[in-house]
Nucleic acid binder design. Structure first.
Lengths: 251, 251
DNA sequence: TATACACCCTCACGTTACGTGAGGGTCAAG
DNA sequence: CTTGACCCTCACGTAACGTGAGGGTGTATA
C-alpha cells in the first residue's frame, strides 16, 4: 500500500517541499504513478526516510547522509546502532548543557561563581561533530562507513584528559612538521619523528593500526586542500615522511 | 578585563564571523578600541553571548532571540528559567526519539512491529516549536515575553489527549467560522458560538483568561496575514464575532 | 629601518536546506 | 461544466553563516 506525498508529509511531519528535495537529491526516491506522475511512497521508502530523519536530527548534512547510505557496506541495522550511540552522546551533551545552565542560574542568585571558560561548557560541538561537518563525506567515500563509525565511536568515548593529550600531540606534531620540512629531507631523524607522532596521533581514534590505511590517509591529505591546510600546506612532506617510515618498517 | 574577538571565539567556540554577525544584528555589541576599532568584549558581553547561545541551541532564530532580549520585561534570570524548561522539554523529546530508535532496532530483529505512524514518533517538532518558528517574534513584540513564556510552559506540559482535544476544537472552530461568515452577521447565534469556541481554545494555552487580551489578539489576527491565512481569510469576521461577544458580556 | 608575523577590520560572493508562490494538469463530486 | 482536492515543475528568496580579498596597526627581529 503506497502513500502519496501529502500523506507522507502528514505522517512524518516533513514538508512536501522537503520530500521533493530529498527525491531530487537521491535520498528517498519513490516510484511514480504512471498516469499523473504522482510520487508513490512504499513502506521501504518510509523506512529509508526515517533513517534520513534520524541522521538529520543528528545534524548531518544531506550530502553526508547520502554518502553514508550509498556506501557499499551500508546496512540499516548498522546505521541504527550508529545513530543510537550518537543520540546517547547527544543526550550526554544536553545534560552537560543543563548543568551549565543551572550553574548560571545559581550564579545569578549569588550562590556560586563561574569562570568565563565554564560559561560556555556544553555549548561547543564535540570533536566528532566538528570532523563530520568538515570532512564527513569525503572520508566516507574513501574508507567506507564501517571504519568511520568505529573511529567515531572511539572518539565519542574519549574522556577529557585523553582528548587534551591528543590535542597537545596534534599541536606539537604541526610544530615539528614545519621544522622538519625546512630541511627538505623526508628521511631525516626529525621527519621520522614526525611520522611516528602522526602514527601515535592516529592511535587515539583508530581501533587498530594498519600501515596501508596510514599510507592511503597521508596520500589523501595531499589531494584534499582542507587537509593540506590543516597540515599548514605541508601535507606532501608529511606523506613522504610517513611513506619513508613505512618503507623502513618493511625493509 | 576585556577580550578581543579572537579570544572570545576561542573561549566560546563561536567563530569570529558569527560574532561580527551578532554585532551587526545588535545581539551582542562590544565596545570598540579607540585606535584600531577592535571589538572589545566585556564580562557582560560574555553573559549576553551565553544567553544568545542557549537560545540558539534551542533552535530560536536570531530575530526572535533579539526580540526576546529587547523586551522591556526581559531579565536574564527569567530567560534562564525559560531556557531550562525548554532544555528539559528537549531532553524529553530526545528520550522519546531514542525510544523510537530502539523500537526500530527491535523491529529489524523481528522482535516487534511498528505502524507507519509510530516510525516517526519523536521526529516531529512540538507545537511550541512550530509556533515559535512561525510567529515567535511578532507575538513577543505585542504581548511581551512573560505572557508568551507562560503560555509556552503550559503547552509544553500538555499531554497528548489534551493536545488532540485542542486540535479537534481548532478544526471544528474553523468549520463553524466559515459557516457563520456566510451570513455576514457577526451577532448571529452561530457567530457567538464561534467566539465562545475561540475563547475555549485559548483556555488551553493561556494561564488565565483576559477579555482585553482576547480583543487585542483577534485584532492582531486581522493585521497579520499569516494569522488571517490560518483563519481561512476570515480573521475580520472572527474579530467582529469576538468583539460582539465581549460587548454583550459587558452590557 | 625594513620585514615578518599576529591579529583585527570591512566587504562581498557563495552555500545549504529548504519556504513560498506562480502556473498548470488530473480526477471525482455536484 | 464547474469546483475543489491534490499533485506536478519551476524559480526566486531567506537565514545563518563560511570563505576569501584587500587592507591597517603593533610588536619583535634582523
Amino acid at each position: 500500500m503506497d502513500y502519496t506525498i501529502g500523506e507522507v508529509a502528514q505522517l512524518s511531519s516533513v514538508s512536501e517541499r522537503t520530500l521533493r528535495y530529498y527525491d531530487e537529491l537521491g535520498l528517498v526516491c519513490p516510484k511514480r504513478d504512471r498516469q499523473q506522475l504522482y510520487r508513490l511512497y512504499s513502506k521501504e521508502d518510509l523506512k529509508r526516510l526515517q533513517t534520513v530523519l534520524f541522521y538529520r536530527e543528528l545534524d548531518f548534512d544531506l550530502a553526508t547522509i547520502k554518502a553514508i547510505m550509498e556506501d557499499s557496506g551500508f546496512s540499516i541495522v548498522q546505521a541504527l546502532e550508529d545513530q543510537r550511540q550518537r543520540l546517547l552522546a547527544k543526550r550526554s551533551r544536553l545534560d552537560n548543557l543543563l548543568h551549565t545552565l543551572e550553574t548560571t542560574i545559581a550564579e545569578q542568585r549569588g550562590e556560586t561563581t563561574m569562570t568565563d571558560k565554564e560559561r560556555f561548557e556544553g555549548l561547543k560541538k564535540s570533536l566528532v561533530e566538528e570532523n563530520e561537518k568538515k570532512f564527513g563525506k569525503e572520508i566516507r567515500t574513501r574508507y567506507g562507513e564501517e571504519t568511520v563509525a568505529k573511529s567515531n565511536a572511539q572518539m565519542m568515548g574519549m574522556d577529557e584528559k585523553t582528548f587534551n593529550e591528543m590535542q597537545e600531540l596534534s599541536t606539537l606534531l604541526l610544530e615539528k612538521l614545519v621544522e622538519a620540512e625546512k630541511s627538505g629531507d623526508c628521511r631525516s631523524p626529525l621527519a621520522r619523528q614526525v611520522a611516528m607522532m602522526h602514527k601515535q596521533w592516529l592511535a587515539y581514534t583508530w581501533p587498530s593500526y594498519n600501515a596501508e590505511a596510514h599510507a592511503n590517509l597521508v596520500r589523501m591529505y595531499v589531494d584534499d586542500e582542507r587537509f593540506n591546510a590543516f597540515y599548514l600546506g605541508k601535507a606532501a612532506f608529511l606523506r613522504d615522511a610517513v611513506l619513508a617510515l613505512l618503507d623502513e618498517r618493511q625493509a
